[in-house]
Design a protein around this nucleic acid. Structure first.
Length: 173
DNA sequence: ACGATGATGAAC
DNA sequence: TTCATCATCGTA
């Protein structure tokens, strides 16, 4: 079908990875069924200085995954009911990740994880077929002019300099 | 505008 | 051990 994205893809600049994930496919194999959808919206969280990032609290039981190897899923529960899907970027010890905010036909990070049956069971697993969740390049090219960037969503508690970063990317429809 | 609903991190 | 907060969403 497509080319599976390996560790090297994620071992790069977080903002670049967030941008390049647009147009790539998220593939989920669960209970014998395979479902896939194109990624349409992402957000970058980079470094422990980024006050919008969980990594700004330092290394804790929850956030240590962000300090680990690239290409590993970081999944957590928010508001008691929605799982957020992140993929770790950059080299080991540099905490960073990209939040997958939307896939085609499912707008919103909580809705896409529900649709793809993604929960904490996948937390800390690498993005590869044997994990049941992975990324594929299927040759879709998103023209640069149709990539929009804005501030990130739901992080207004952070300091203005971090709120102002235009690290949310999406494909204009 | 707000409540659902539970894990997390910080305070005590 | 308690408390406020939260990378959201559906209903209003």
């Amino acid at each position: 079908m497509g080319t599976e994205l390996g560790k090297a893809f994620f071992d790069r600049d977080t903002v670049l990875v967030a941008k390049e994930l647009l147009g790539k496919f998220l593939v989920r194999k669960f209970r014998g069924r395979e479902v896939s959808a194109m990624i349409t919206e992402t957000e970058a969280y980079d470094g422990s200085e980024d006050r919008a990032s969980h990594a700004s609290k330092g290394k804790t039981a929850r956030t240590e995954i962000m300090f680990g190897h690239p290409g590993v899923f970081y999944i957590y529960l928010v508001y008691g009911m929605y799982y957020m899907l992140n993929i770790v970027t950059r080299e080991h010890s540099h905490p960073a990740a990209v939040l997958i905010r939307s896939i085609q036909h499912y707008n919103g990070p909580g809705k896409l994880t529900k649709f793809l049956n993604i929960d904490k069971d996948l937390n800390a697993l690498p993005a590869k077929k044997s994990s049941g969740l992975w990324f594929e390049d299927r040759g879709v090219k998103i023209p640069p002019r149709s990539i929009k960037k804005t501030r990130r969503i739901g992080i207004d508690y952070a300091e203005p300099i971090w709120v102002a970063k235009k690290w949310r990317f999406f494909i204009e429809r």
